[in-house]
Design a binder for these strands. Structure first.
Length: 273
DNA sequence: ATGTCGGGTGTTACCCGA
């Protein structure tokens, strides 16, 4: 197939908090933003319930992985969508259940050299530091790092994007009040260490250098958004070759406004060819 | 003051999760 489009691509990640409730807002965002690939989290539906038609009408292919009303991850792409994989090698289960928290696909083979291997990730919340879900979160992150590190070691020039809702605020400035979060998940040292450890395998978080301080999530409760009491928990970790190709990033704060928003907003990165 | 959102069900009243 001939190259139809050169010049890089725009990749975004967005925890949509139910795609069935949010599909109009999500497709409107795609139409006006010029995003070529959108990784979604918390679709909250089974595969057959995902509203594919509105995406396909705009020229996007969709891969979705969802078992039930919890979790659910997807990737929509108008620049190719190949080698789809649900879950990663070694991904821990929650009890007996392999949850729908990771979906990989190769996109952009015609617009970026070698394409980009995108993983749409919904990292477990952890609930409370004393809750078994917290140990599950740490184990899940450790397994992801082990597997993703192996990908980079096997293919050092691979362009790999680990994107999504990491449910970790890596720095104190990434929450509206460290007092409020004292003793809570998302800010604990083991979670922050787990996030930072990806750097040892060559991954770089590539949005902060372009957007030094901006929240990506505001709770629906307590007027958190009007008061700008949010958290920065949605990130893009890029392999060495991909990090070199990233030319910009943006956090779409305005998507938290208006009628029926998700509690998260899209995070966009621009990738050169 | 868990005061808001989702989706679910033994559904029109509550459950769980975030």
């Amino acid at each position: 197939m001939a190259r139809v489009r050169l010049g890089g691509m725009k990749l975004a990640t967005w925890n949509v908090n139910s795609i069935r409730t949010r599909v109009d807002r999500v497709t409107a965002f795609l139409e006006r933003s010029g995003v070529d690939v959108l990784a979604m989290q918390e679709t909250k539906c089974r595969d057959e319930q995902f509203p594919r038609a509105p995406f396909e009408a705009l020229g996007y292919e969709v891969a979705h992985h969802g078992h039930n009303q919890w979790n659910g991850v997807a990737i929509a792409s108008r620049v190719g969508l190949d080698d789809v994989a649900a879950g990663f090698e070694g991904m821990p289960t929650w009890g007996d259940a392999a949850e729908a928290r990771a979906l990989g696909a190769t996109v952009g083979r015609d617009v970026v050299d070698g394409g980009v291997r995108v993983w749409s990730l919904y990292v477990p919340n952890g609930r409370e530091v004393s809750n078994p879900h917290y140990e599950y979160k740490l184990a899940w992150l450790a397994a992801l790092r082990e597997t993703a590190g192996g990908w980079v070691r096997a293919e050092p020039e691979a362009r790999i994007a680990l994107v999504g809702d990491w449910n970790i605020a890596p720095e104190d400035q990434d929450v509206w009040s460290m007092e409020f979060f004292a003793g809570a998940t998302h800010v604990s040292l083991p979670e922050r260490a787990a996030f930072a450890a990806f750097a040892e395998d060559g991954f770089t978080e590539v949005t902060r250098r372009f957007v030094p301080q901006q929240f990506t999530y505001w709770d629906y409760q307590q007027l958190r958004f009007p008061r700008n009491e949010g958290m920065r928990i949605d990130f893009v970790q890029a392999s060495p070759a991909l990090a070199r190709a990233v030319t910009g990033a943006a956090i779409e704060r305005n998507e938290r406004k208006g009628k029926g928003p998700s509690d998260h907003v899209p995070v966009i990165v621009e990738i050169a060819e």
